[in-house]
Computed example of a mutant assay.
Amino acid sequence: MDSKTAKNFSGLTVLSLESRMALPMAKLVEKAGGKALSAPSMREVPLEDNSDAFRFFEELEAGAYDLFVLMTGVGLRTLLAALETKYPKERVLAAFEKTKVVVRGPKPLAVCKMQNIPVAVTVPEPNTWQEILAILREEALLAGKKIAVLEYGASNADFLEGLRAGGATVRPVKIYQWALPEDLGPLERGIEVILRGEVQVLLFTTATQVHHLLQVAGPRE
């Protein structure tokens, strides 16, 4: 980061809605010349019913999918933990060899390396769903393919539709969902500083953060 980029917040107060990465995000804001405030807005909640994950595993093991797109490291760890409650770990990992694994970014890639899961495609930065579509088109891995997508909390309708528009059959796999934090205090205080006009920049990394902010804010005088 050069000196010009390092000061691009120029002393502005920046409120981040990040949760799990709240501290690293605050450090990045400060490094960029901003005053960092944090209002965690989400928590990851595993699904109580893993029956769909078990059905998906049976399909994966049977070789039903040409590609398995991993959108999140947390999701992959949660999926593996859920499957290992019913199947031996060796059997679970062997099923991943029946498909080509596509990783969206460094977090799912790190989990794959830790578990010795072979990776066929690594998506380039900035690791968004647009880059996934672009590289799959480039590698001719869309038309006529059966693609499973391990989602991250909330379904990305644009991404799934993009896969289908490219000629793929898509199977979403959901293993956890987003919920509000158990302690809403920091988020409520963040809303108050926004209403007082003390924040110049709101920093969101996912649409769910926006939804949760508006949900907690509600109608106010």
Rank of each mutant, 00 (worst) to 15 (best):
W129R: 09
P126R: 10
V121I: 15
K146L: 00
G144H: 00
T122C: 11
P106D: 07
R77T: 02
P126T: 09
G73M: 06
G105I: 11
V101D: 14
T72Y: 12
G105S: 11
T99M: 01
Y87F: 15
V103C: 14
R91G: 12
F68G: 09
T85S: 11
L70E: 13
L79C: 11
T78G: 04
L136T: 00
M71H: 13
E138T: 04
A110N: 02
K107E: 07
E97G: 09
K98S: 12
A134N: 11
V101Q: 13
P118K: 01
L136F: 03
C112D: 07
R104C: 09
Q115W: 13
V103H: 04
P106E: 05
E125A: 12
Q115S: 11
V103M: 05
R77F: 10
A94G: 12
E90F: 03
V103R: 13
A110M: 03
F68E: 09
A95E: 12
A110Q: 03
K89P: 03
A94I: 10
T78Y: 02
V119C: 06
A81R: 15
T85P: 03
L70D: 12
A134W: 05
C112S: 05
L76M: 11
L133W: 03
R137I: 00
L136Y: 00
A140S: 08
G75K: 13
C112G: 08
F96H: 06
A81D: 15
V119D: 06
I135A: 00
A82V: 02
E84I: 02
E151M: 09
R104P: 08
I147D: 01
E84T: 13
Y87H: 13
P108F: 07
G105D: 10
T99A: 04
K86Q: 15
M71P: 07
P106L: 05
K145D: 01
P118E: 08
E139A: 09
E131P: 02
V149Q: 01
V101P: 14
C112W: 06
L109Q: 07
R91K: 15
L93Q: 01
L93H: 04
V92K: 05
T78E: 06
I132V: 14
G75T: 14
V123G: 13
N116G: 08
V92M: 09
A143F: 04
I132S: 06
K146S: 08
I132A: 08
V69M: 07
A81Y: 07
A120H: 10
I147S: 05
P118M: 02
T128L: 02
Q115T: 06
E90S: 14
T122N: 14
T128P: 07
L141N: 00
I135L: 03
L150F: 06
K89S: 15
K146D: 04
E97D: 10
I117C: 00
T122W: 12
G75R: 10
P108L: 02
M71G: 14
